[in-house]
Design a protein around this nucleic acid. Structure first.
Lengths: 267, 267
DNA sequence: CGTACCGTTGAGGTGAGTCAAAGTAAGTGG
DNA sequence: CCACTTACTTTGACTCACCTCAACGGTACG
């Protein structure tokens, strides 16, 4: 896996901070991503908005490229514009353990940034993707100067809109069936297309091995889960293309256990 | 499990905020816990320090009592002064899943506070404990008014000094042996007493069932791990009292896998 | 002395990992 | 266009760590 750094961004931001330049008419065009909605509500002074815009970088990464690496010191805040990024760390057995999937408009790298500690995870591009980068000193400066921005930023982080909330990441002890079904649900919410007849079609952005990695499982186990779901008629797989005739029924696998264990089997 | 609320604190803080009272000479005596070191470095105005002090509550909880519950809205920030608290949530099968152990000077309840969302976990006292409470509006107000405080607070949260970093919580897929050994290491760091001969003695604050809960395992499995460690002479158990003759050797179980998997077996 | 809970041990079942091999898709060069 | 390579996916057989169920010993407490 090759590597591209965002060093230019940091240097540029330092420069801008030192100069104290002011660009009255610049709009934060490049700052899309998850921060966008925040930004709009924050009454940035013109020069700060310009600074933010000027010190922001966008880079492209190929599949397999590393965006940052476990142990690196934090250079700033990352935001995925398109594609899928996987955050992993090396566990006690030196195996890659998935922590979180990051998709369009999700942030990453913030823990390290605010903890002032090295990255605890590596970020690998699971697909080709665009990544937006905000230099550390700029983000921290704005957070200090705009309590509203600070509050919004941390609210977003605490809520963690990303794919992390998914059960398949939080509960590796659940059977693979459930974790995989939950994975499909998350994928469908982000990439699903209605088929009109109540069914949904999803083009999975990643391949089996990566799905396995995300589920903390083996590719073979994923394959078995797939054949099982197909045998039950809950989904039809054609490569990375998944057709789900009745999403509700499929997702009942995920929530169904809850109801069944709580109040007996419901039909 | 019974329940005590901190409602008094919120109300008191509201009152203090409305009145805008000023107590020039009051020191933040009650604000110990993990925030203490932060507080000292923050140049609070006297009235704000007094407000913080006045709106802070300390409560005692018995073993098994619930401090807050999954689904409750956030009332503020909690800090454990003594004892052990376990944060859990109901997983898809309605089983309690441990998220984090919270010990003396650790914070809890902050995610919910900053996300402005209901608590995602329940906090149960594993032992009798003292818990310190800071009302929501006070914390948020101070965070807005003192960027330094805000930054420090979030740095602490991001670093999460608590017991969460432990492998036994983060890596439930590792063998119970390793998770339990890591658990012992964490317990020893916090509760261990040197025995002079290089050995360490730990009085575990919690019982087997709770250990199992923390490890995402069954009490029987914990018992088996214990007998195994005793058979190998790595530790001697007498109820909740553990004697570890050579900590280094025990903890090699935790890190040993790393080395072995990386560069072959070392002797 | 019985009840209740905790902790330990044994027997048996099972989900998922491992290993091995065959099937499939996608490029590559002649 | 076809052989060939390469990587990805699926299936089967086997193994194993942990869970489940059940029984038993120890201790506290009424």
């Amino acid at each position: 896996m090759s590597r591209k750094d965002f060093n230019g961004a940091s240097a540029g931001a330092d420069y801008a901070l030192r100069r104290g330049q002011s660009h009255p008419t610049v709009k934060c065009a490049r700052i899309g991503c998850g921060l966008q909605s925040c930004m709009r509500e924050v009454p940035f002074r013109t020069e700060d908005a310009a600074l933010l815009d000027r010190s922001t970088l966008v880079r492209n990464f190929e599949r397999g490229e590393e965006i940052f690496s476990e142990g690196d010191s934090s250079a700033g805040l990352y935001c995925v514009r398109s594609g899928v990024v996987l955050l992993t760390y090396k566990d006690a057995l030196r195996a890659d353990k998935a922590v979180r999937m990051v998709g369009p408009s999700d942030l990453m790298g913030y823990r390290s940034l605010f903890a002032e500690e090295p990255h605890g995870t590596s970020a690998e591009a699971l697909t080709a993707c665009h990544v937006c980068f905000f230099a550390k000193n700029v983000i921290l400066r704005l957070a200090d100067n705009y309590p509203v921005f600070s509050r919004m930023l941390f609210r977003e982080l605490a809520r963690d809109k990303g794919l992390r909330r998914a059960r398949f990441m939080r509960e590796p002890h659940l059977p693979i069936r459930i974790r995989f079904a939950d994975f499909l649900r998350v994928m469908e919410q982000r990439y699903g297309v209605d088929e009109g007849d109540g069914g949904v079609c999803v083009q999975l952005p990643i391949m089996r091995r990566q799905i396995a990695s995300v589920l903390s499982a083996r590719p073979e186990s994923v394959a078995r889960a797939i054949t099982e779901l197909e045998r039950e008629g809950l989904a039809v797989f054609d490569g990375r293309r998944v057709s789900i005739p009745d999403p509700g029924e499929l997702y009942r696998i995920v929530d169904g256990g809850t109801v069944a264990a709580d109040s007996g089997t419901l039909t």
